[in-house]
Design a protein around this nucleic acid. Structure first.
Lengths: 182, 182
DNA sequence: AGTGCGTATACAACGGATTGCGCAGCACTT
DNA sequence: AAGTGCTGCGCAATCCGTTGTATACGCACT
């Protein structure tokens, strides 16, 4: 149970709407913790009931009204409490990796095609993160060290994946060349 | 819904008990897909009802009896079907990363201690994977390319994390030196 | 006029996942 | 003699998460 804490962390710097949070989860933080808007709205509702967050209603023109959430004292206290206790191990669900593990039954061409498509997404993400890192580096590095470190993690992650993808491609192409030749 | 497929992949090579699978999920595959024994037993039950897997009861001496599961034809067909359709995006839940992102509210010493403990685990895992990779490399590389690639992923992942950890340590130590000096 | 996209919020239903508990025997240590 | 840890299986409750659906307005495109 800790989508709540991810939300509290995001609200720590600035107030945000559910929609804003959803966008952040889809981008930067999404690499490390993901959530859909339904989940976020639900959790914001719960947090609000428990007085961890507070919102003000902001009418808008041309756009639907929104609710801007911010941390309450109780929310900040809860966040500090959570930060102190050890985090659980990281969990991942990478379906593509499972497919590679079961690769002997798969069609190599299909796997290669999927690999390319995933690699493309990763490269785009890498570019986004690198641009972001540079911007953070140029402005005050000290104020947002934590932000910077988060982005660095994203960069290293993408690079590691892409390097692995090269190895996979090499092995698979080798294999497919074999089977084509036979 | 695809713990089922991870299980089918594991059963593809060899028959295994629920307990065996749980160990595999805790180790090698665990980096990419995790599951507890309760989940595994439940899923094996469902798979068995649907005739995707089949088990034989094996009495043992000195240990509890066990059920050794293996794929049926239907299970293999389902696996092949699943391998063809594109995998969803990888999902992660890394609580420690969330903590780093919210680091400005955290106690630097606590974070550093946790970083060390996680780094230790990662280093151990890295050693295990590297040993495994070497063994696979020495025996026939071609038979278990897929297995080898899975392990490679684990290695690259650990290395990327450890590199990131170095960056984090550097930043945090810098910070803590500042605050100690002031 | 109709279609699709972006902003913004929300409910309902189902299924997947975690947590807590329980049983059972053997081996090894303290 | 009691405690700890490993092998092995399983149920029940609850919570988390996904998917589907809904509403509402403005803007741009065809």
């Amino acid at each position: 149970m800790s989508l709540r804490h991810a939300i509290l962390v995001l609200l720590q710097d600035q107030e945000a709407s559910g929609y804003d949070l959803a966008r952040e989860f889809a981008n930067s933080i999404g690499l490390v913790w993901n959530a859909t808007h339904q989940q976020i709205y639900l959790e914001l509702g719960k947090l609000s009931e428990q007085d961890m967050v507070h919102y003000r209603h902001v009418p808008q023109e041309g756009k639907p009204d929104k609710k801007l959430y911010s941390l309450t004292e109780a929310g900040r206290t809860e966040l500090v409490r959570w930060l102190k206790k050890p985090a659980g191990p990281a969990r991942i669900r990478d379906a593509f990796m499972v497919k590679v593990a079961g690769g002997s039954l798969a069609d190599t061409q299909v796997l290669l095609a999927e690999l390319d498509s995933l690699a493309k997404q990763r490269r785009e993400r890498l570019a986004t993160f690198e641009a972001l890192a540079q911007r953070l580096d140029e402005s005050g590095r000290d104020d947002n060290v934590y932000n910077y470190l988060t982005v660095r993690r994203g960069i290293l992650d993408q690079r590691a994946w892409l390097q692995w993808a090269e190895e996979v491609r090499h092995s698979l192409e080798h294999r497919s060349a074999d089977s084509t030749a036979s």
